[in-house]
Design a protein around this nucleic acid. Structure first.
Lengths: 95, 95
DNA sequence: AATGTAATTAGAAATTTATCTAAATATCTA
DNA sequence: TAGATATTTAGATAAATTTCTAATTACATT
């Protein structure tokens, strides 16, 4: 079931707001609230985007008291990169 | 206007049918009809996907008689890869 | 010029996605 | 336990996306 999130991940990074969230998290873990501060959207909308990133295994969350911290999960990024490598390779056999 | 297609490209590759088209083209140029043969969709739907890939600068087309040949344009893939590199880098300053 | 083949464009229907407000849940603190 | 803060869930709406059929455009052949 690992490859399941492959398509989900591509869908997830298709949204510029979600890519921005990932860029923010690259610099360090943030709470949902801190993430929301960087956007004009309402918090529930940000929460929705975080959920999609989580389902795609691109981020992880952990509760610390009242806060929920989000962090990057880089493992799936590797899979996505592989797809690009395959495309750019001169010869290859991945269909 | 180069960065314009950045977001379009991410949107374009979010669709599994379009990723399949790109994978097919990796092995060599194909006509719209040949591409369509690999799918259950009707031709106009394939044509629609090709248009989106073209607008994202991921493919190029050229007419040869009745046929329109599609080919990969790898330059934008490099840009997309860069985004992944930035995310995976331990330290970086791209916001 | 008439017909056939390749492909796109147009327009409609169904599905998915993004966003909002209101309500609910979880946790902390007094 | 009551109230405050952080976050998510629910439900609605608007916008975007995917796919279809029908019509159109472009080129080739007879």
């Amino acid at each position: 079931m690992k490859k399941m999130s492959f398509n989900e991940a591509f869908k997830a990074i298709a949204d510029p707001n979600r890519r921005k969230i990932l860029s923010l998290l690259k610099k360090g873990d943030l709470t949902a609230g801190e993430i929301a501060e960087h956007f004009d959207m309402q918090k529930p909308s940000v929460s929705h985007h975080l959920k999609i990133l989580k389902q795609a295994d691109l981020v992880e969350d952990r509760r610390v008291g009242q806060h929920i911290y989000y962090s990057l999960n880089t493992t799936v990024f590797q899979d996505l990169m592989s797809w690009f490598y395959d495309i750019l390779q001169k010869e290859g056999d991945k269909s």
